[in-house]
């Protein structure tokens, strides 16, 4: 029983990373209708920025905040320099360009920081004895912290979207760009903001994951794939779906790795592919998505 609780909580903590990344994907998909392939790599880049800053003596919190600003700038730059010019000419080509950005950021990270793995300090207490015991299960503070972080981000995003004028503008632009223009919303600025926000969230996700997973150039490769499945499962246009989808995928992963011996860790991605196909066949809009997810 205690092992089960431990595995589930760890699964939820992993799932929280996928949720954060899926949220970033959804924020962009809602406004631009694109799946940002470079989302994970921008996060990895940001995690290396955190590493550099902490190594030069900056506190971890401030390092992460700074790296999130860098992630915001990179992601907003991608929207302005790559996505927008291509989209006006050929919307279908944007996805190819984003794969290009994925490769470019990946290579840039390797060029700057090399390919050797390095550690990253956790923002939460992460020594050997930093755990609480619940029903006999030792739960690490650092893992619980990630779940708390997800809750904070979800709350802040909810405030932004539902309680601020800029959030109203973001929802309006996601719904109808032409009408947004007509009520005086500068659509370009709002799109830039959405991409930037997604970039910052991606960096946060990477900085949460790196302390336990180890910081390498491929840090976010697997999580990005799982977050994509999570976003499709939850519904590509639903922030709530992204959160639930991420947590579900995290728990599914924990169950497969922990209890399904004939599948195990090696078969994780094939199983996720089956889940992805099943969602696309049975419920293309996802659990919480609206039926109309194609661009209009």
């Amino acid at each position: 029983m205690s092992l089960f609780i431990e595995r589930m909580v760890n699964g939820l903590a992993d799932g929280a990373i996928y949720s954060l990344l899926a949220l970033a994907l959804v924020v962009i998909f809602r406004s631009t209708g694109q799946l940002n392939f470079a989302q994970g790599e921008i996060g990895t880049f940001g995690a290396f920025v955190v590493s550099t800053l902490t190594l030069s003596g900056w506190p971890v919190w401030i390092s992460i905040g700074t790296a999130m600003v860098v992630g915001f700038a990179i992601s907003a730059g991608v929207e302005r320099i790559v996505v927008r010019p291509i989209e006006t000419r050929n919307p279908g080509a944007v996805i190819v360009a984003l794969i290009g950005v994925f490769l470019a950021v990946n290579q840039l990270t390797a060029m700057i920081w090399g390919v050797d793995a390095r550690g990253l300090p956790s923002v939460f207490p992460d020594d050997a004895d930093d755990f609480v015991t619940v029903f006999g299960a030792p739960l690490r503070i650092a893992r619980l912290g990630i779940l708390a972080m997800l809750a904070v981000v979800v709350f802040l995003l909810w405030l932004l979207f539902n309680k601020t004028k800029i959030g109203l503008a973001m929802r309006a632009v996601a719904n109808n760009q032409e009408s947004s223009n007509l009520v005086g919303i500068r659509v370009g600025g709002i799109l830039l903001l959405g991409w930037g926000l997604a970039g910052a969230i991606g960096v946060l996700a990477a900085a949460m994951l790196a302390p336990s997973a180890g910081l390498t150039g491929t840090l976010m490769l697997g999580p990005f794939l799982l977050a994509s499945v999570a976003a499709v499962l939850g519904g590509l246009d639903s922030p709530l779906g992204a959160v639930v989808g991420g947590l579900l995928i995290g728990v599914t992963e924990a169950v497969i790795v922990g209890y399904v011996d004939f599948l195990g860790a090696d078969m994780l991605f094939p199983v996720m592919l089956v889940i992805l196909l099943a969602v696309l066949l049975l419920r293309p809009a996802g659990l919480f998505g609206s039926e109309r997810v194609e661009r209009v």
Partner: peptide
Amino acid sequence: PQGRGTFTDLSVEDNLLAGAY
């Protein structure tokens, strides 16, 4: 606008608030 151009996914009140943007 032609075809009304309401924000169909937004509430009626949010539509009005968007008008005051």
